[in-house]
Design a protein around this nucleic acid. Structure first.
Lengths: 196, 196
DNA sequence: TTAGCAAGCGGAGTATCGTTCCGCATCGGT
DNA sequence: ACCGATGCGGAACGATACTCCGCTTGCTAA
């Protein structure tokens, strides 16, 4: 039983009134725009205004802010997860696959302003987002790490969850500070992961 | 010219009315208590109430939340900075000194709930805290890294700022998730820093 | 000792944001 | 065309950050 129960705002439901469906799409588009401009912490009112709908509407379709964020980024998260499995069979070695996949993962986090920040927020507002990320990406990370460990390329015993979370943390705040490039540190981290 | 201009709330000013000084001390004590219980994001009102003063008073003494946090943790930050230089002359090798110092640094961050989080907050509320941390600790990190690089123990070219910030990031959220232990990742990071 | 004034105090006031709630409009089947 | 269910909008409420100004209090000079 997955922790995301799939019953709700993910895929547009089959039997939905036309206006409701229209509004949901308007909201997704508006949210995507606003997130780019003001980060995932942008005021709800701003998103509602941009979409031209009332506040009630936004809360009906996306009860929590997380639900909205998940809906907006679902495609990219899905792609990232699939790319991981593909890389495992295509790349030269499991470690190379791991490196490349983490690169994609970092892309996902740094491209969307504040997404990494949101993921780690101690504030529980983003719990569902956190859960969805984990549901989709942790299994991929596990497979990549296991493969690299079996091939003897990295030391065993790394916790996939911890690695994902750590990388997520490292990506926080990269966009308001040119001196800070998380990729350099992540490279170091992967270096430390290698078997001597 | 340091970025902390030293003219204000740091050390209690010399010529201050007795009641003002009393209030400042009450505020520092109250803030320290509240931070432990509710994290550094606790409502200002709560701190003011605990200290038995009005909101105007708290804003007069500590114009931003950062100023208050800095004042509360100044001692510990100072100690951490001094310990770094001491370790450099006492520890067996520069790399050992670096390892131990980073351990102290992590202690500082994880002991105080939400301190790491506050340091990286994209919210500009904590800018002065960030500045003070850097002013005091970055020079220490630089000396430790330089010494280890000269001794050939680590690869050169690491940015001290980036390392500090990265470690700070890694420490975010450790206290609401038993599965996540930043120290393991930081060990890995240091491992990756070592010269092959 | 005391008078006067600057330094300091308190908290009501203003603004922003999240979230709820319910009267009203709209859709879609009959 | 009608009508019930579904969905909509935004006013209203509570929480919080931060400001502002009339009043109080400590300090000092006479």
């Amino acid at each position: 039983m997955p922790t995301t129960d799939g019953s709700d705002t993910g895929g547009t439901a089959r039997h939905m009134r036309a206006d409701a469906r229209r509004n949901q799409e308007k909201l997704l588009a508006a949210a995507a725009e606003v997130f780019v401009g003001s980060g995932v912490d942008a005021p709800i009112r701003q998103i509602a205004a941009r979409a031209g709908v009332g506040m009630g509407t936004i809360y009906r379709h996306f009860p929590t802010r997380s639900d909205l964020v998940v809906a907006v980024f679902r495609h990219q998260i899905e792609e990232c997860a699939e790319a991981g499995l593909r890389l495992l069979s295509e790349a030269g070695s499991p470690f190379t696959a791991l490196q490349r996949w983490i690169d994609l993962f970092v892309d996902l986090l740094v491209t969307k302003h504040g997404l990494a920040q949101a993921l780690q927020s101690d504030n529980s507002r983003f719990a569902p987002l956190h859960a969805y990320f984990l549901d989709r990406l942790q299994p991929v990370a596990t497979r990549l790490l296991d493969a690299a460990a079996e091939a003897g390329e990295i030391r065993p015993g790394i916790h996939p969850y911890e690695l994902l979370r750590g990388i997520g943390n490292l990506c926080i705040g990269h966009d308001d500070d040119p001196r800070y490039d998380p990729r350099r540190l992540i490279t170091l981290l992967l270096q430390g992961l290698r078997r001597p």
